[in-house]
Simulated scan of single mutants.
Amino acid sequence: MHFAPDTNDVLAFDVALLNTVSTASRSGTDELATVSQLADLLAGSGFSGRIDHDEQELREVHETRADLRRVWSLDRDDMVVELNGWLATTGATPRLVRHDRLDWHVHATPDDAPLAVRIRVEAALALVDVVRSDETGRLRVCEADDCDGVLADLSRNGSKRFCSVRCGNRVNMIAFRARSAGG
């Protein structure tokens, strides 16, 4: 699947954010429990603008994470309702910008908007591209029985089933052992 590079980047960030919850993380704990962990998540994300590095910001990002997790698996029409609501309540005003190493891309909030608002709007804009391309089926929950991880399947053939190689290997090993025991 081919989206604009900034859409791919935001979808990758969204997956990383959503997979910090305890039921999806590698550690089995909330990997976004501290301001320091949020700073680590943001380090390679490309988010520019205001970052407060405080507990209030962390709480707001947690709320955004919960809302985004809920929207991730909605059907296309229900997703549109949610996304339109997000864009309306945040006062998103899209504009093209170029900064740092990035070529022209869309920002839709002021640089001094709270981080959680910018994450929500960036996610909404990326998901707008997914909806417009009729590719919401590529936003999935991991098929491993014991994992709540999510994935954005950006592969050409749309066959990605697991949130990580770890989950895929574990499920394949379980299936292999079941076949071996039966034969």
Rank of each mutant, 00 (worst) to 15 (best):
Phe13Ala: 07
Val10Met: 14
Arg70Pro: 02
Asn8Gln: 14
Thr136Asn: 11
Leu58Arg: 13
Thr23Phe: 06
Ser164Lys: 02
Ile174Val: 13
Ala108Cys: 03
Glu82Phe: 03
Leu74Cys: 08
Ala24Phe: 08
Asp148Val: 03
Ser22Ile: 05
Ala123Pro: 03
Thr93Cys: 08
Val80Met: 03
Asp54Lys: 14
Thr20Lys: 11
Phe176Asn: 11
Val121Ile: 06
Asp111Tyr: 04
Leu83Arg: 02
Pro94Lys: 06
Val121Gln: 08
Ala66Gly: 08
Leu38Glu: 13
Glu55Pro: 05
Asp103Asn: 10
Gly28Leu: 06
Cys163Asp: 00
Glu60Asn: 13
Gln56Tyr: 05
Ser36Lys: 11
Val10Arg: 13
Ile174Leu: 12
Asn19Pro: 05
Cys147Lys: 07
Val117Ser: 12
Val10Asp: 09
Leu18Ser: 12
His107Leu: 07
Ala144Asn: 15
His53Val: 07
Val128Phe: 01
Ser36Met: 10
Asn19His: 10
Pro5Tyr: 01
Val15Gly: 09
Met1Ile: 03
Val106Cys: 05
Ser73Tyr: 00
Arg101Asn: 12
Thr29Glu: 15
Ala123Phe: 04
Ala66Cys: 04
Asp67Ile: 03
Leu139Ala: 13
Leu154Phe: 01
Leu125Thr: 05
Gly85Met: 04
Ala144Cys: 05
Val171Gly: 02
Val106Pro: 03
His105Lys: 01
Val15Ala: 14
Asp6Asn: 08
Ala39Trp: 06
Asp9Ala: 15
Trp104Glu: 09
Arg69Thr: 09
Leu42Ala: 12
Ser155Val: 00
Ala108Lys: 00
Asp30Glu: 15
Trp86Phe: 04
Ser164Ile: 01
Gly183Gln: 13
Ala16Arg: 14
Leu151Gln: 00
Val121Phe: 04
Leu17Ser: 11
Asp40Glu: 15
Gly44Met: 09
Trp104Thr: 07
Gly44Asn: 12
Gly44Ala: 11
Arg156Trp: 01
Ile174Lys: 13
Ser164Met: 00
Gly49Cys: 10
Leu11Cys: 02
Val141Ser: 14
Arg101Phe: 02
Cys163Ile: 01
Leu74Ile: 02
Arg98Pro: 01
Gly183Tyr: 04
Ser155Trp: 04
Ala144Ser: 14
Leu125Pro: 04
Val71Glu: 07
Thr20Val: 07
Ile51Asn: 13
Ser155Gln: 01
Arg140Gln: 15
Asp134Gly: 12
Asp112Val: 06
Ala24Gln: 10
Thr136Tyr: 05
Cys147Ile: 04
Asn19Glu: 11
Val97Glu: 15
Thr34Ile: 10
Arg161Tyr: 00
Leu87Trp: 02
Glu122Leu: 06
Leu139Gly: 10
Asp40Asn: 12
His2Phe: 09
Asp103Gly: 15
Asp134Ser: 15
His105Thr: 01
Asp148Ile: 03
Arg59Lys: 13
Leu139Glu: 09
Val21Pro: 07
Ala43Pro: 08
Asp6Tyr: 10
Val130Gln: 02
Ile174Trp: 04
Ala152Arg: 04
Ser73Pro: 01
Ile174Asn: 08
Leu115Phe: 06
